[in-house]
Amino acid sequence: MQKHKKNINLLLGSGILLAFIGILIVSFFYTPYDVNSMDIPNKLKEPSTTHIFGTDEFGRDIFSRILKGSQTAFLVGILTIAIGGFFGVLIGGIAGYAGGWLDEVFMRIMDALMAFPGIILALMLVAVFGPGIINTSIALGIIAVPSIARVTRSGFVQQKEAEYVTAAKLIGVKNYKIMFKHILPNISSQIIVALSIAFAIAMLAEAALSYLGLGVQPPDPSWGRMLKDAQSYLINSPWYTYAPGGAITLLVLGLYLLSNALRDLMDPRSK
């Protein structure tokens, strides 16, 4: 029974993620229409056989833009977890491994950052960097740092007393090698869970920033931006919000399910 449930999460989660990766790959080679070409006389047409998700306020094909939007989504998500992952693992690793005052300093800064509700920090940072895909990703990456650093730190704290670490130290392996070659692989699953959650949060945060007029800017098709644009046509064309809203929700759901499944797999008590 236990196994059965984990499999459902894992199956659903990875299935959704794989489907989106499929869409991503397709979008590089094929979209039914050019994503930016406008056809203003045919704006805001309901879903039909020619435009399966309808057309937007410029008469652009929404389905094509959803496909292309997957590129933006993955770019933002991957950049965010790359930035958040790099600095989070570095800071958390050093803090956990070295301990002492370094640990104190790093963790106090992380505490201070975590005291800001994420969206406030994102707003402040995007205001500093300016909107756009890269800038938004940098801001979201910075926001992801503290939680990833915490996970990494506690992993390192647990592992640094382990026998293999003591052994490596005895034979004179350099500290950075112990940290990244020996300890890191042992806690990689925890970090992967933290990263996939960070990816999911980045998707939602991008949508929220877009709603506030920041975030990814046109003409790059972004689901968050499309959802925001669709919002102004909600009463007459409610179907317009379904495609971008559904895309975000599904991808985020997939990521959450996957991270839950991974966490359950790792948890020794549930074995």
Partner: peptide
């Protein structure tokens, strides 16, 4: 400017 969506909409049409 981002303070009103009309500007980015106009820009998108101009670009095309």
């Amino acid at each position: 400017s981002s303070h009103n969506d009309i500007y980015s909409s106009i820009a998108q049409i101009a670009v095309e």
